[in-house]
Amino acid sequence: MLGFIIRRTLIIVPTLLGVSVVVFMLLAITPGDPAELLLGERATEESLDAMREYLGLKKPLHVQYGLFLKRLVKLDLGETIWTRQKVIVEIKERFPATIELSLAAMFLSCLFGITLGIVSATRQYSAFDYLSMLGSLVGVSMPVFWLGLVLILVFALNLGWFPVSGRIGIGTDLEVITNFYVIDAIWTRNWRALADVLHHLTLPAVALSTIPLAIVARMTRSSMLEVLRQDYIRTARAKGLSEIKVVFKHALRNGLIPVVTVVGLQFGILLGGAILTETVFAWPGVGKWIYEGVVKRDYMVIQGGTMLVATAFVVVNTLVDILYAVINPRISIQ
């Protein structure tokens, strides 16, 4: 088991190295000059030249890549072109917001997705089954941008139940320690702030959860259906176990294995930042930050952001693989 974990963890290094090479090559062939974008209409050849020199864009690409790797080893991602801040600082400022939102969305997805999946599987072809699967189809196909606006219109503006956007109200004081507002509020026992933060978190989390929720629900349903048809389940029922025990004790553990994989993948995707949800709800996360980095050709943001997303994705999936092995010991042997 330990060997499996070590092997699995070591694969992360070449994976990330590969990502860094691909990102660099893509940047090299992408048109657009950050100096030009920075200076806009008023750029002169002279000011552009000075800016390119300053930004190190005149160095050959392999030298730039070498410098990048050298910094990366020291966990230094350099400074952004636009804001002149350390990339690592910019990530620290934004990544907690993304993690918080992703966790909330995954919590909702798992809670409702797995519940719906189980109920649908145990009542296959019932009205509930049809309805929940139809609902999940709608969930998968709904544009998040549109859904976000509808949620804001209905629940924030008309009903007034939730704030329109942002992470915390203007009038709410919170001592920021970790930049995870929920944790900070609990840490400082600031219950008013905690309520406000959860209040702000709800609508974006609901909007962001629709797609993973639908996928989790469908996956749980099909996986549970398969498991419920197996012989040992029939045996369990024949023993006279209650349906609840059969489903939750015997079927669920096996039925959840593919669901865990899907949850891991979905969580990894969410950690890459949800550009649309972040934009609609003015949520200061990494998704919009990376997107703007791309638009402005801020190479440092793109490199740092991509490495971050790749790392998050790889780490989550490594954890999932390990978790998989825990749930199903046969996997580590292979």
Binding site: L153, V164, A282, K288
Partner: peptide
């Protein structure tokens, strides 16, 4: 100074 990237959401915040 609050950053609200989406024009319509910014306007809704004003209305609210």
């Amino acid at each position: 100074f609050r950053a609200i990237p989406e024009n319509s959401v910014r306007f809704l915040e004003l209305k609210a």
